[in-house]
Design a protein around this nucleic acid. Structure first.
Length: 490
RNA sequence: GCCCCCAUCGUCUAGAGGACCAGGACGUGGCCCUUUCAAGGCCAAAACCGGGGUUCGAAUCCCCGUGGGGGCACCA
């Protein structure tokens, strides 16, 4: 039997890393087993589902390289893959449950239900449907439905005994049936609720393994009961642990983060993170791959993925590790590849990028950036006409303004006179100059760095100068000297 | 409040009764390298939640406690 797995998100908000990890594990398992990965859109909540969310979801999945074999846009033999287009299918199955006595119509108004819930909470009881309509006769139920009275369809959960379900990661889980509720299966607008839709679709789409979040653990027995009521075979269930906030307090939410973009896949992309880094990072929170190396490609992870290496406990997200992974992935990138990835960040910052220069600076920044975005701060000066050094950086500690001026003037002359404007030649000459001026190399070079890059931190100075070119270098030195002469005026 | 799940360094994890005075990674500290910042190399500190069992032997199995998490909608 070929493996068929599915990722079934609800397009109700921005796509976050928790969802990405669930999708990733599905993909890895499918790839490893030669199975199929299905994307199914759970948009039965017409109030909350939005087209924008769906687009973001698909874009994020594609960006991560998590391509689906069946689903929206690509189709497949079990479509449609959007639940909103499958209403008739669910109604047919709901009818089947109704006729078999596994479900019943409930005519209780939302108001009555709200009052009921309130009273139960006040009495410190678990809010649950009290079963009023459960005892309605078939005739009365049919009659009231025929008059057009609105109703929902509820599952008739067993009252006595226990129900045992099996989760691959946790083993058997047994609950007292007395704690079960008569869940709504079909809403009064005829739309199914997750509990019905997901179970029907997993069956209809021949899903063999379900990887889903542990938030479904509490309704897991109900899902198994529905499957059993139909007499279907159960898939293998893996309830994945949740992501917790870095503080460990509660489920991951944007509120506890430096930037709320950090929870969203596309947010991370815009922050300058690589899909490779995100994949290898989220994969490791909730599973292990038994490899010496932690930075694994999708293919490597697929080869090593195992249900037995999934962890059932919740994981706090660790953004420091993401940074580490991202830096390491960046350093693995070929120069050309990195160029194309960095370029948009320069452009987004309003800089005009010329490709030959970009090609030359990329190896320099590659060693020292954590996110792609860092390249702008590190190397933006290459693409600006002029720079604005801080006056304080031109008169560093231990040097008077006169000394700084003298040093820059001598350096300028030396650079102008250099036969070859190469970094090797510059370094040789300027080291001599530092000795002549009785300055530490750090002092002289720091001064030049400030004057020419406008920064105190930059890629190696002489490589920078070589790329900036003699003309611009001399001009910026002149501007720095100007600044030294009249710091107040500027 | 009720139900369910989970529990190894600060964090993610390895560990499936003896191979563990518990291994790796991130982070932290130190050293080296060094024109800045990084990168890189080396080193260090750092954990089996508590209590009972079972067993010759438990991080590993069982029970209780504690802690953490998830859920309790005509949302998914």
């Amino acid at each position: 039997m070929t493996v068929r797995v599915r990722f079934a998100p609800s397009p109700t908000g921005r796509f976050h890393i928790g969802g990405a990890r669930t999708a990733l594990y599905n993909v890895l398992f499918a790839r490893q087993t030669g199975g199929r990965f299905i994307l199914r859109i759970e948009d039965t909540d017409t109030k909350r589902s939005t087209p924008e969310a769906l687009e973001e979801l698909k874009e994020a999945l594609r960006w991560l390289g998590l391509h689906w074999d069946e689903g929206p846009d690509v189709g497949g033999p079990y479509g449609p893959y959007r639940q909103s287009e499958r209403k008739a299918i669910y109604q047919r199955y709901a009818q089947q449950l109704l006729e078999a006595g596994h479900a019943y119509r409930c005519f209780c108004s939302p108001e009555r239900l709200a009052r009921l819930r309130e009273a139960q909470q006040k009495a410190k009881q678990t809010p649950r449907y009290d079963g009023l309509c459960r005892s309605l006769t078939r005739e009365e139920s049919d009659r009231r439905a025929a008059t057009g009275e609105p109703f929902v369809i509820r599952f008739k959960a067993p009252k006595d005994g226990t129900t045992t379900v099996h989760d691959y990661l946790r083993g058997d889980i047994t609950v007292e049936n007395s704690t079960l509720d008569d869940f709504v299966l079909v809403k009064s607008d005829g739309m199914p609720v997750y509990h019905l839709a997901a179970i029907v679709d997993d069956h209809e789409m021949a899903i063999t393994h379900v990887f889903r979040g542990q938030e479904w653990l509490s309704t897991f027995p109900l899902h198994a009961l529905i499957i059993r009521a139909f007499g279907w075979q159960e898939p293998v269930w893996c309830h994945l642990s949740v992501f917790l906030n870095p503080t460990g307090k509660g489920k991951l939410s944007k509120r506890h983060l430096k930037s709320e973009q950090e929870v969203f896949v596309l947010g991370l992309r815009d922050l300058g993170y690589l899909p490779e880094a995100i994949n290898s990072w989220i994969a490791l929170m909730g599973a292990s791959f038994g490899a010496e190396e932690e930075l694994l490609s999708l293919d490597e992870m697929a080869a090593r993925f195992s249900l037995d290496r999934l962890t059932p406990s919740a994981a706090r997200v660790n953004f420091e590790k993401l940074d580490d992974f991202n830096g390491k992935w960046i350093r693995r990138l070929a120069v050309d590849d990195l160029c194309t990835r960095i370029k948009p960040f320069f452009e987004r910052a309003g800089l005009k990028v010329d490709d030959p220069t970009l090609r030359r600076i990329t190896p320099l920044v590659r060693e020292r950036i954590v996110t792609l975005d860092d390249a702008v701060e590190m190397a933006g000066f290459f693409f600006r006409a002029d720079v604005q050094p801080q006056p304080a950086d031109l008169t560093p500690k231990g040097l008077t303004a006169e000394q700084s001026t003298q040093a820059l003037e001598r350096a300028r002359a030396a650079l102008e006179a250099l036969p070859e404007f190469t970094h090797a030649a510059m370094e040789l000459r300027l080291r001599e100059l530092a000795a002549e001026l009785q300055l530490k190399t750090g002092q002289l070079f720091g001064l030049l760095r400030a004057a020419i890059t406008g920064q105190t931190v930059s890629p190696p100075l002489f490589e920078c100068l070589e790329i900036v070119g003699r003309e611009t270098t001399l001009r910026r030195l002149d501007q720095a000297l100007q600044l030294l002469k009249s710091p107040a005026g500027l």
